[in-house]
């Protein structure tokens, strides 16, 4: 009896194994169903909502929409954003708060999107770039407003 059980066990195990191996053999012979992508050569287009890093879009006149209100700085959970403001003098002699430097620490950012949601003027957005590796850590600290840029007229 023991021998009979043993042989039937071996037979059943081989049968179930072959059943599973049939699946493997199917994919072995059907190359078109293989979904591996050759990453550095073939790059898949990322969806528009993909969160890669925070950027500040500038228009053709080198103008941005950031008023320096620090809503994003307050919304950020990791102190990723530091906004340095200055006082511009308007033509009629009044002082007006404006953005001097928008410091963005990519090394601290978790791409949670809370800053973009908090921005009242849509001055910042998430970009689709994701290959962030650099040789020096200090290069991850970025200044988002471009040199010489100023606030777009009409944005309050």
């Amino acid at each position: 009896m023991f021998l009979k059980d043993y042989i039937s066990d071996v037979f059943n195990a081989t049968k179930s194994l072959l059943k599973g191996m049939r699946r493997t053999g199917y994919y072995f012979t059907h190359h078109k169903e293989i979904i591996t992508q050759q990453y550095p050569e073939v790059k898949q287009a990322l969806p528009e909502r993909f969160r890669g890093e925070v950027v500040m879009p500038h228009d053709e006149n080198n103008e941005h929409a950031c008023t320096g209100c620090t809503a994003c700085e307050l919304a950020c959970p990791n102190a990723t954003i530091k906004i340095i403001t200055k006082f511009d003098v308007t033509p009629d002699g009044k002082k007006k708060k404006a953005l001097d430097t928008f410091v963005y620490h990519l090394e601290l950012c978790t791409m949670c999107n809370l800053c973009v949601q908090a921005c009242p003027t849509d001055a910042i957005k998430m970009a689709q770039t994701f290959e962030h590796s650099v040789y020096d850590r200090s290069r991850l600290t970025k200044k988002l407003n471009e040199p010489g840029s100023k606030i777009r007229a009409g944005v309050e």
């Binding site: 969806p47 909502r49 993909f50 978790t110 949670c112 999107n113 809370l114 949601q117």
Partner: peptide, 19 residues
């Protein structure tokens, strides 16, 4: 990725609904 913007740590649920 398409709807929430991330693949693993989505942060899609916000108080009051979804992002």
């Amino acid at each position: 990725e398409e709807t929430c913007g991330a693949r693993l740590t989505m942060n899609y649920m916000v108080p009051g609904g979804v992002m």
